[in-house]
Nucleic acid binder design. Structure first.
Lengths: 224, 224
DNA sequence: TTGCAATTCAAACATTTGTATGAAACTATG
DNA sequence: CATAGTTTCATACAAATGTTTGAATTGCAA
């Protein structure tokens, strides 16, 4: 097993197929056909389909988290231990957005696979994903250093919204393109990142409006 | 077929099961067991599994869209044809958030079903969902009336982000609760709506920052 | 080369799933 | 009551899918 070429071929083919078509309708036979290996190879090398998926996911999780943390660390070191909130948010959403958007050829299979994973949440993945919480806590900590005066609740919501916007932009880029008839340029990755970061940062730095908004105002009360 | 009770039982059981467990792992046999009807009844009454799903989805789509438009119309009439941007956004995200969050008993199966549908995007639904674009255009129009000076691109992004935050909050409410260790109260539906609306409105009304942010700033450039 | 372990392969298996069938039960109408 | 149309039911079918099996092949060390 000098080169593990069969294993690798399976991993690559599986990642690409899952990224393109989702977990729902990719069968082992699709994978082995794409990898040009025998059907039984998957069970021989990975044990089961679920274990194959799990291995893909842990590998990519580690890589994504490392990319995020590298960017965060670089920003904090440049700022002497405290990074600008924009930089923190950029480190959070940048890696995934860069991997998933942009002109066709630049998109990374790995990033698209991770998005699928976060969308479909198939059982073998759901079991693992709890660790992500710990990873996100590191960003909460960085945000706390960046905005010492801000309440934790606001930080949690800010991180949540930042991820929401980034995530949904990837997920539903097609709808946004159609809706805007091409006006919203999703190939301008840096522009998208700037937008997401700007809105999330605004939500985190603007006055307490988000928390003190009139709680009882519903549509019918709208001022005339 | 006086009461259509079999049809209705199937629809109810299917909606609940799909809302709870997703389309992926709910079989016709699960549905007929829950509805206490014969297996063949589904094909008899709906033709196929896909047609059953499609019927559920169109019914609920129409209802959701109507709820949104009612709230929008009420707000615009109260404002003499032009609603506050907050009210427009509230009409957009309110109905779904109210249906999906809040204390266990108040959640609506219908709303949760719609979220599933928007997440899993199973083929029979994907074919129909294009119509949603037309529905969202009505909100773009209302937003344009509310913020006449704003560029269309900003409006599209604002609507996109509002839906993203609302949607993701529903989808990943569990993660937010865990991450914040309960600090973020998702049972306070009105509070959540206020937050989402406030952030989206801020993104839409604040200066052109979102568009004029330094386009080349990446993490490594963060000011020291 | 020989022998042994690792790997690959074709084939088969056991389930699961959506759908189809034809008989039985039911309902309403004459 | 009788009959025609509708609905329900048990059962069967075909296709798809993850997994297993045992033989064949390969690679490498003695």
């Amino acid at each position: 097993m000098a080169t593990d070429q069969t294993r690798t071929a399976i991993l690559n083919a599986a990642e690409r197929l899952y990224a393109d078509r989702g977990f729902g309708d990719v069968t082992l036979r699709d994978i082995v056909a794409a990898a040009d290996v025998n059907l039984a190879a998957v069970n021989y090398h990975f044990g089961s389909k679920d274990e194959l998926i799990a291995e893909l996911f842990v590998t990519r999780s580690i890589a994504t988290n490392r990319a995020r943390l590298n960017e965060l660390k670089a920003a904090e070191e440049a700022g002497g231990g405290r990074a600008d909130i924009d930089a923190v948010l950029r480190a959070l959403v940048g890696p995934t957005l860069r991997g998933c958007l942009g002109p066709e050829r630049e998109r990374s299979t790995a990033a698209r696979f991770m998005i699928r994973a976060s969308i479909e949440a198939v059982p073998p993945i759901r079991r693992i994903r709890n660790r992500e919480i710990d990873h996100l806590r590191k960003f909460i900590a960085a945000m706390r250093r960046s905005l010492p005066g801000r309440s934790d609740v606001d930080l949690y919501w800010g991180l949540h919204f930042a991820l929401a916007m980034a995530h949904q932009t990837i997920r539903d880029s097609e709808r946004l393109t159609k809706l805007s008839e091409g006006l919203c340029d999703l190939d301008d990755v840096q522009g998208v990142i700037d937008r997401v970061v700007a809105v999330a940062a605004m939500a985190l730095t603007e006055g307490e409006t988000a928390r003190k908004a009139p709680a009882k105002l519903v549509a019918q009360d709208a001022r005339r």
